[in-house]
């Protein structure tokens, strides 16, 4: 940091002698810096974020009203709402992408919340070997998503993958997994569930660990069974953690990109079978150079994310 920090030892010794004032008297920049510490501390981070954020946002909004394509530097024409009309009436790529984004997000969220809660409840009370399982659930979480995608590509390979081999042993399959037009999206959801269920479990576990056992025990004495205790006692108490997990996972699931790109490549596969809004916007931007259309898709996508966040947080206030 370039903020000059007054040496407290010498500064205090030098000035306290000169006056009875409890604080060392200051002059110039140091005094100014100390009086404006609030903004001095916050400003660099805010300026950096604003610089990296505001230009892109304004630019994206601007591009969405133009026919920008080919090169970003190429002359653009203002075409009003044409892009919005075009995108919103596009039942070929846009609306299927919206559908896939929602199916993907809702699907992985439901499974991750349920499984994550089960794992958290399982780990709530200490037992032998607990350390091992905590390590095991941490590994998927910190693994590089692109590498995870490659790993599952081999496991789910229809011919040489162990998934079909193992299912074949019990008389199931073979399934096409990522290669199937109908099964690809569900398979990528499985991968996302593998990687991020541990995250939900850890957040909920942190919430559960902070609860006291007494309420639960009181409910048990009153004759509540296990399910009733979970539903009427534990769940309401741990609800703030559930909302945090839903928000964090929800935002990231809507924006999932790495796993989809690693497993299916550009455009979400040859039939766009895993093309979500994020993958579609990426393709429009960097494969087709349709910057105007891409910006329009992105603004609508952003609106969807904000709407989802507001929906989740307003539910919290009701409770």
């Amino acid at each position: 940091m370039s903020v000059p920090v007054q040496n407290p030892a010498s500064g205090a010794a030098g000035t306290v002698n000169a006056s009875d004032h409890p604080r060392p008297s200051q002059s110039g920049f140091s005094s100014w810096a100390n009086r404006h510490r609030k903004w001095l501390f916050a400003a660099p981070a805010m300026i950096f974020t604003a610089a990296m954020l505001i230009f892109p946002l304004v630019w994206t909004v601007y591009l969405s009203f133009t026919n920008a394509q080919g090169s970003v530097r190429a002359p653009k024409k203002f075409i009003g709402l044409d892009n919005y009309v075009k995108v919103l009436t596009d039942t070929d790529r846009f609306w299927p992408a919206v559908g896939r984004t929602l199916v993907f997000t809702a699907g992985v969220l439901v499974v991750q919340m349920v499984l994550g809660m089960c794992i958290a409840l399982l780990l709530r009370r200490a037992f032998r070997g607990q350390g091992l399982i905590r390590v095991a659930i941490l590994l998927p979480l910190v693994a590089t998503p692109v590498a995870v995608g490659m790993m599952w590509r081999l496991i789910f390979d229809p011919n040489i993958g162990p998934a079909n081999y193992l299912l074949g042993l019990i008389g199931l399959g073979p399934y096409p997994w990522l290669a199937g037009e109908k099964t690809a999206l569900a398979t990528t959801m499985l991968i996302d569930i593998w990687q991020w269920t541990p995250m939900v479990a850890l957040i909920l576990l942190a919430g559960l660990t902070s609860l006291s056992d007494e309420v639960d025990e009181a409910a048990a004495i009153d004759g509540a069974n296990t399910w009733q205790r979970f539903w009427w006692v534990t769940l309401p108490l741990v609800w703030p953690s559930v909302v945090v997990a839903l928000l964090l996972r929800g935002i990231d699931a809507l924006k999932t990109f790495d796993i989809l790109y690693a497993t299916k490549g550009r455009g979400g596969g040859s039939f766009h079978e895993v093309e979500t809004l994020n993958v579609y916007a990426y393709g429009l931007s960097f494969d087709y150079n349709e910057y105007g259309l891409a910006s329009t898709v992105l603004i609508l996508f952003f609106a969807l994310i904000v709407a989802a966040m507001l929906a989740l947080t307003s539910r919290q206030k009701e409770r």
């Binding site: 916050a42 981070a45 805010m46 974020t49 604003a50 990296m52 954020l53 230009f55 892109p56 946002l57 630019w59 994206t60 591009l63 970003v72 530097r73 935002i251 924006k255 990109f257 994020n278 916007a281 990426y282 931007s285 960097f286 910057y291 891409a294 910006s295 992105l298 603004i299 996508f301 952003f302 994310i305 904000v306 966040m309």
Partner: peptide
């Protein structure tokens, strides 16, 4: 101010990449 900075977490990366690239 905090919300402005945290918005950076919410915004889709692709929407930043085209302007950044330019």
């Amino acid at each position: 101010q905090a919300i402005v900075v945290l918005m950076a977490r919410v915004i889709p990366g692709v929407s930043l990449l085209v302007p950044w690239y330019y």
